[in-house]
Design a protein around this nucleic acid. Sequence first.
DNA 1: AATGGTGATGAGAATCTTTTTCATTACAAG
DNA 2: CTTGTAATGAAAAAGATTCTCATCACCATT
Lengths: 139, 139
Amino acid sequence: MDNQDIRKAGLKVTLPRVKILELLENSTQRHVSAEDVYKMLIDKDEEIGLATVYRVLTQFEAAGLVTRQNFEGGYAVFELDRGGHHDHLVCVVCGKVEEFVDTTIEKRQREIANEHGFEMVDHSLIIYGHCGNPKCHVG
Amino acid sequence: MDNQDIRKAGLKVTLPRVKILELLENSTQRHVSAEDVYKMLIDKDEEIGLATVYRVLTQFEAAGLVTRQNFEGGYAVFELDRGGHHDHLVCVVCGKVEEFVDTTIEKRQREIANEHGFEMVDHSLIIYGHCGNPKCHVG
DNA sequence: AATGGTGATGAGAATCTTTTTCATTACAAG
DNA sequence: CTTGTAATGAAAAAGATTCTCATCACCATT
Ligand SMILES: [Zn+2]
Ligand SMILES: [Zn+2]
Ligand SMILES: [Zn+2]
Ligand SMILES: [Zn+2]
């Protein structure tokens, strides 16, 4: 993941793009909103406009560098696409996110699409639950 | 599905609530946005404000009468919860929506949650693809 | 049937996220 | 360096949803 990836995407290597890619690589949070990215950049004294953050994230998504997720909450979160596809497990109390891949489910999805005459191109699977943290349990 | 359901939800039986429930029952589209509901009501000369549509749909959701789905597009769609849970298959070209239930996937999801120390309370599975319609195929 | 309390409604303002506009700036090819 | 074009920032606009608040309607009680 470096400037070559930006070039390969047919995009000029500009400061905002480099900084945003860097940030996605180094951030402790794997899943960040556009607003998160914007604020993190401000904290690093990088004066990059919010509109540019949105533009760049959308371009990175189109280039396959980044994945956009629509968790609940009315806003999108982005994550660097480190090779493998995966799905998400989200704690409805604390918001903790874990990732997983399950070949059984992946295979069944394709089969189901075919059974319905569809050709699958993508999917979104999010499991909501209470995580292991005692504070996140009811009762 | 009738006024008793509204009462059971702890809500007063009012004209907007009755009309919206009726509409959800009789609509040919099972998956409608708040805006859709609002416009359909206007077409029927029911003067119900958009804010009320949002309020009522949210209340119906809390009461378990209605399910809210976040397909792609930045807005929510609602559907009457006719008994069973199901997941969705959405055509990325024409927007056609089909529903399905797969016991294999349902079971695996619960297992995956447990393997990660989560207790599943809900999930969202949307398969995106090209439907059977020739117009919706690439190449 | 009239009354009153509480919850519900409608209109518009407000909020929140994301996109667009447009004048200015910065890549990168020559 | 010069220069064409793509990229940027600020602000406005757009789109979806929620909030505010004055008014209204349901419904239990007279
Ligand atoms: Zn938790
Ligand atoms: Zn992830
Ligand atoms: Zn399911
Ligand atoms: Zn459905």
